[in-house]
């Protein structure tokens, strides 16, 4: 074996020194669809963040709205001379501006709730994995119970008790999503706990928190990031659905879902744009995040690699 390997050694000695991050980037970039999706996500986030500077109109400033501009089709001119590229809604609100501000709320609620759910779920998942026994059993029982009911039902229940509002929607989303994070974190932790480096760390008699947070958590992150990406998309979808049903965000802070709901009644009379364009914005956002998540899963999942 050693003899046959000898002629190859010169090639082995001078590999291009690749940082793990560079390798991650190049593997991610193997799929053009994933790259486009990533760019789309970045653009969408940028639009959401800078909406006040990018949008032609502040859709919440009632002084800027003129009811006479209501329900204008895309491309119509405003009295002041600028164009409503995507038309206006029944209040005379520029749809393009409405969508930009709507994205802000949709993304804010989706990402915010996923982050909180991630922290809570991961903490509980790691606790379950480390404590084992009764603690593990009761946490996972709760996870199973939670996951056996569909998200929409749980969210409905919570909003029925608490009423509408951005905070209540976020709370509902967190309650719906924490269980998936907990399950993912627990299974990742159980795999990691058997690895040699954990054995070594245990032998050094490091404090338990250090063991979990400094040594184990970073290695558990890949699956959590993957599930997190997909859950952000799910949270945005669920928020839009709840808002569409009239149970989500209040009318003063319309997310994409609420914009779609507002246009629904006009769709049957052929004024499609009030619902259609927010729908497209929602769709592109969800698809882009999902595709990024898919590619992340392919790149980060060691099981799929040969």
């Amino acid at each position: 074996m050693s003899e046959s390997a000898l002629p190859d050694t010169p090639e082995v000695v001078v590999p291009r020194q690749e940082t793990p991050f560079a390798r991650f980037v190049s593997e991610y970039a193997e799929s053009p669809v994933a790259v486009v999706s990533f760019v789309a996500v970045v653009l969408i986030v940028a639009v959401a963040l800078f909406a006040p500077w990018l949008s032609p109109q502040n859709p919440y400033d009632l002084a800027q709205l003129d009811i006479m501009d209501g329900r204008l089709p895309p491309g119509a001119k405003s009295p002041e001379g600028w164009t409503f590229w995507l038309g206006t809604d029944d209040q005379g609100r520029d749809m393009l501006s409405g969508i930009m501000y709507g994205l802000r709320i949709s993304l804010g609620v989706g990402v915010g709730s996923a982050l909180i759910a991630c922290v809570i779920g991961t903490a509980l998942g790691l606790t379950a994995a480390f404590a084992g026994g009764r603690v593990d059993g009761s946490i996972m029982r709760l996870v199973d119970l939670q996951l056996s009911f569909p998200a929409i039902l749980v969210a409905l229940m919570i909003l029925a008790f608490l009423g509408k509002g951005v905070m209540n929607v976020m709370l509902a989303l967190v309650i719906v999503e924490w269980a998936r994070f907990a399950r993912t974190a627990r299974s990742a932790a159980l795999v990691e706990a058997r690895r040699e480096y954990m054995e070594a760390a245990r032998c050094l008699a490091l404090p338990k928190w250090r063991l979990i947070f400094r040594h184990m958590l970073p290695n558990c992150m890949p699956p959590i990031i993957v599930i997190g990406t997909i859950l952000v998309a799910r949270a945005i979808t669920l928020e839009a659905t709840l808002s569409f049903l009239g149970l989500g965000v209040p009318i003063t802070e319309p997310s994409l879902g609420l914009l779609i709901a507002n246009g629904y009644q006009y769709m049957l009379s052929g004024k499609y744009w009030i619902s259609f364009y927010p729908g497209i914005a929602l769709l592109v956002t969800i698809m882009a995040i999902n595709l990024v998540g898919d590619q992340l899963r392919d790149v980060l999942n060691p099981r799929l690699k040969r």
Partner: peptide
């Protein structure tokens, strides 16, 4: 994949828009 990730209410609206309206 679309069947999974498209928001169902939006698909419903599109169905109405195309097949009914």
């Amino acid at each position: 994949i679309l069947g999974f990730s498209l928001p169902s209410f939006w698909v419903g609206l599109m169905l109405i828009m195309v097949f009914a309206v």
